[in-house]
Design a protein around this nucleic acid. Structure first.
Length: 408
RNA sequence: CGGGGUGUGGCCCAGUUGGUCUAAGGCGUCUGGUUUGGGACCAGAAGAUCGAGAGUUCGAAUCUCUCCACCCCGACCA
């Protein structure tokens, strides 16, 4: 992508209506735009990051047998009345049409996926089954806050699993934990994301959250350094003791809930009468699990963690571009390098604009691509191009011949 | 939902004891020129129903009332 043609431009001043770092940085660098409290557009750079995040999540969900689908954002009122949540879930956005045509904007999809599964699951032979989707969720939060960390419309992955019995759900749940760990590791958040005991679903004592340690987080968790696990403050009775190993001196940390997994049991299969026939021809209620993971929230968490005073430092796995190529009045040479990198399928943002060097450097730091490649008189005199990692101080001069292999 | 704060060109803001405000400045944008290793400079230009509505007044960005939006703290958060 040539930066001269990029839809967005960076801005110098902090947006006055954002106090959280993630929103300030993402807006200044042109990744997102806010249209209302807790409601954001993803712009070309931001959407590229989301797509990287998507890809990682999809791979890991497919690896545990998830099949990707896409369910509607609108659900008829009856679905939500069937589970009683039409009246009890206060974050539910409801359309205000005529009485017989009311809909909810889905904040989660049990009320959609369960009747859907009923159409296809009949036999024990079809179990277990798992489907997932990535789409916008709507929650009418009393107070949206912290930029992309808590929005009213946000991107989430939700997977639902269907099982013949509790043991099978338990096994699958463990696999999901492994998949989630892989995902956060690949986001570059592995070392600061903890499997966390949280208040349970209806059939389990606990649910589990994946809490990422960030200063801006709204949750307080207690980390056990022996178990590499944590406990959410909301459930812990004795704040000094790990429920798993009994360790006493837990570390209090601020964190954000990037994922949450639940053993639903029959909470939703019962009201929708989701049953299967077992080997003996007996009808039994399907056991369910659900597994959520916020994409936009994860993106915000990454930004909260990966930055310095100049801007974002994207982990390579989710960076909008791998390389930011800066031409300092050497567009002829730079354009050739740009073409070479494109041919080698290296993702590159090419700053071909007619601007001062300082402005280009500042933009590159703000946008935060992992590698910065500078082509200038100075670099050419030194024997090639200057390559610098965003995360490091020092640069090296590399020769034109080695550039593609170096960045592949 | 309770408390606090803010609202002025695309962005950041000055101006708020009512009166050359016919709304200042910076950033950005456009035109021309000079520049080019850390947001460089000169000259010119476009761009604003001062959040909305009602009111007080000879006169309102400025005072009063109502509403709206956004931010922060708290409560809430399958």
């Amino acid at each position: 992508m040539k930066q001269s043609q990029l839809f967005t431009r960076t801005v110098k001043e902090l947006p006055k209506d954002e106090a959280s770092y993630n929103a300030q940085a993402l807006i200044r660098a042109g990744f997102v735009d806010k249209s209302a409290a807790g409601v954001y557009s993803f712009l070309p750079l931001g959407w590229k990051v989301i797509n990287k995040i998507k890809e990682i999540i999809c791979e890991e969900m497919v690896a545990i047998g998830g099949q990707e689908i896409n369910m509607p954002s609108l659900a008829p009122r009856e679905n939500w009345q069937a589970t009683g949540r039409w009246d009890t879930l206060d974050v539910l956005f409801k359309t205000s049409g005529s009485d017989e045509k009311e809909y909810a904007l889905n904040p989660t999809h049990e009320e959609v996926v369960t009747p859907l599964a009923k159409k296809f699951i009949n036999s024990y032979r079809e179990l277990p089954m798992a489907v997932f989707q990535i789409q916008n969720k709507f929650r009418n939060e009393k107070r949206a806050k912290s930029g992309l960390l808590r929005g009213r419309e946000f991107l989430m992955k939700d997977l639902y699993s269907f099982h013949a019995d509790q043991t099978d759900l338990d096994d699958y749940y463990e696999k999901a934990i492994v998949a989630y760990n892989n995902i956060f590791y690949r986001f570059g958040l592995g070392d600061r994301t903890y499997l966390t005991y949280a208040s349970g679903g209806s059939f389990a004592k606990y649910s589990h959250e994946f809490q990422t340690l960030i200063e801006a987080g709204e949750d307080i968790i207690y980390v056990c350094d022996d178990c590499k696990m944590a406990v959410n403050k909301e459930i812990i009775a004795d704040q000094d003791t790990c429920p798993k190993c009994g360790r006493k001196d837990l570390r209090e940390e601020k964190a954000t809930e990037a994922g949450n997994i639940f053993k639903l049991g029959t909470k939703y299969s019962e009201p929708f009468d989701l049953k299967y026939q077992d080997k003996n021809g007996e009808k039994k209620t399907v056991i369910m699990g659900c597994y959520g993971l916020g994409l936009s929230r994860s993106m915000a968490a990454i930004v909260e963690v990966c930055h310095d005073e100049k801007g974002i430092i994207w982990p390579e796995s989710v960076a909008p571009f791998k390389v930011h190529l800066l031409s300092l009045n050497e567009n002829e040479t730079a354009t050739k390098v740009y073409q070479d990198l494109l041919s080698a399928k290296i993702e590159v943002l090419y700053d071909d604009r007619d601007l001062s060097a300082g402005e280009k450097f500042a933009d590159a730091d703000l946008i935060g691509c992992p590698y910065r490649l500078v082509i200038s008189k100075k670099s050419i005199q030194a024997g090639g191009f200057e390559l610098k990692k965003r995360s490091e101080k020092d640069s090296e001069i590399i020769t034109p011949e080695t550039i593609v292999s170096k960045l592949s």
